[in-house]
């Protein structure tokens, strides 16, 4: 590249416009300007947080009052590891929130194509990988922050309710820390799968439907039939939501993959769709 740069015949001289070359930092800034300028983005982020925090409060209250109504310790014991359940309360809304934040991530890419803005974007930055990875980084940062804030606020809201029912919800407990950090990873994974789908399908509705199908329909159906078909129970562990949930739960649960295996599955669900989307974006016409 450097020798070519020296021999370039006639290049843009610094004219009236000022400015410099395309840089990854510049593309990042551009992506954040675009991202922040859309009301739909903010609405989806706020909805994600509202659902997460609301479910944290509601879940803790429902669980607490249910436990309270149990008369004997035997019934309580049947519920399983109470500490684990309590610690998962602040991430209780994940099942629903995932689709909202996932939709946001889908639209980061699909809205470019739906509106024709992609033409402007990729004429300004014809090296498409720069745009793709800037968007990827942005979605990662935004979704991680949204998840972190939601879970932390969820914890703060759930804590007094838990205390009220004498449930043990501790910030420093290993169980809550697992839910916090792997819950974040879960959200980032869903968002990046959404981004990849948005990039591959270039259509918001289509990509959101596929995302919902993957996380609700496929996941639910496989879980539902897994009691009857034994190989489905094996396959289920490799679904993205099951693998990420396994990381959030206590290690050594029966039938679950090892922690590192689940981690690998989650990594695969992040990396492979991104790689395919990046490759297709490079090759396909805008």
């Amino acid at each position: 590249m450097s020798t070519a740069a020296m021999s370039r015949p006639r290049s843009a001289t610094p004219g009236a416009a000022g400015g410099g070359n395309v840089t990854f930092f510049g593309v990042m800034r551009s992506e954040f300007i675009k991202f922040a300028s859309l009301p739909s983005t903010l609405i989806l982020i706020l909805s994600t947080m509202a659902v997460m925090i609301g479910f944290a409060a509601l879940g803790t209250w429902l669980f607490g009052s249910t436990m309270d109504s149990f008369s004997s310790p035997e019934m309580t014991a049947q519920m399983g590891d109470l500490n684990e359940i309590t610690a998962s309360m602040p991430v209780g809304g994940l099942t629903f929130a995932q689709l909202i934040i996932g939709s946001m991530a889908v639209m980061v890419m699909s809205s470019e194509f739906a509106t024709g803005a992609a033409r402007s974007t990729f004429v300004a930055v014809p090296r498409r990988q720069l745009v793709f990875w800037a968007k990827t980084l942005m979605v990662t940062v935004v979704s991680a922050l949204v998840a972190l804030i939601s879970i932390l606020v969820g914890f703060v809201v759930a804590k007094p309710i838990a205390d009220n029912y004498s449930m043990d919800l501790e910030f420093t407990s290993a169980a809550f820390q697992r839910n916090l950090w792997f819950g974040m990873l879960y959200v980032v994974m869903v968002s990046l799968i959404g981004l990849s789908l948005g990039s591959l399908l270039r259509n918001s509705a289509g990509a959101i439907v596929v995302l919902a199908a993957l996380f609700f329909v496929v996941s639910g159906a496989v879980a539902g039939f897994s009691t009857m078909v034994s190989w489905l129970a094996d396959a289920m562990r490799f679904l993205p939501d099951h693998a990420a949930t396994a990381l959030m739960q206590a290690p050594g649960t029966e039938g679950a993959l090892e922690t590192w295996q689940s981690g690998l599955v989650v990594a695969g669900w992040i990396v492979i769709p991104l790689a395919v989307a990046a490759l297709v974006l490079q090759r396909r016409d805008i």
Partner: peptide, 23 residues
């Protein structure tokens, strides 16, 4: 109109300018 409909003209231009650090 190779632009997102909900974006203002100025924001659209600002976003494109940012890629090249154009003031």
């Amino acid at each position: 109109k190779s632009v997102h409909k909900s974006r203002s003209a100025r924001t659209h231009l600002r976003a494109l300018a940012a890629t090249h650090s154009i003031p």
